[in-house]
Amino acid sequence: MKKIITTILIAVVAVAVMPTTLLLFVGMMPSIAAYFIDKTKQQLKAMTVGCLNFSACFYYWLELVSSDHSLVTAWEIISPTSISIMYAGAIAGYIVEWGVSMAVAVVMVQSGKSKLSSIRKQKEEMVERWGVEVTGVYRLDVNGFLLPKKDDK
């Protein structure tokens, strides 16, 4: 119900500001595509692409609202040049999404390797202090001491 009301409201607003709707629909087509491509719950790709795509469309939208905000003006603004600029913003979003993700992943792997090394060192120190019985892989008595091996007399 909530979705339907929201959809109706958006449709009413979109009709009410039809020139803006037309401009942003055309200009933010890559973000709309990213929204449908990104299957993750957070929709981070759509957000990354959308933010930069929007900032590229923003200048043209300012021009539209500062003039008569008519469909004709909107249609005039939509030109190959303006579309290229608006889509360049979306491309920049894709680049940021790919580049930053890669960089962060590399940093995290390096950090993980360092932590792994630290954990292994801690384990060695614990074995040194508490004996191999602390590892929990040997048969122990009720007090936690190693049970004699079966071949021990």
Partner: peptide, 9 residues
């Protein structure tokens, strides 16, 4: 990385 990217964007 995506989270960071979205914040940067």
């Amino acid at each position: 990385g995506r989270e960071v990217a979205s914040i940067v964007s």
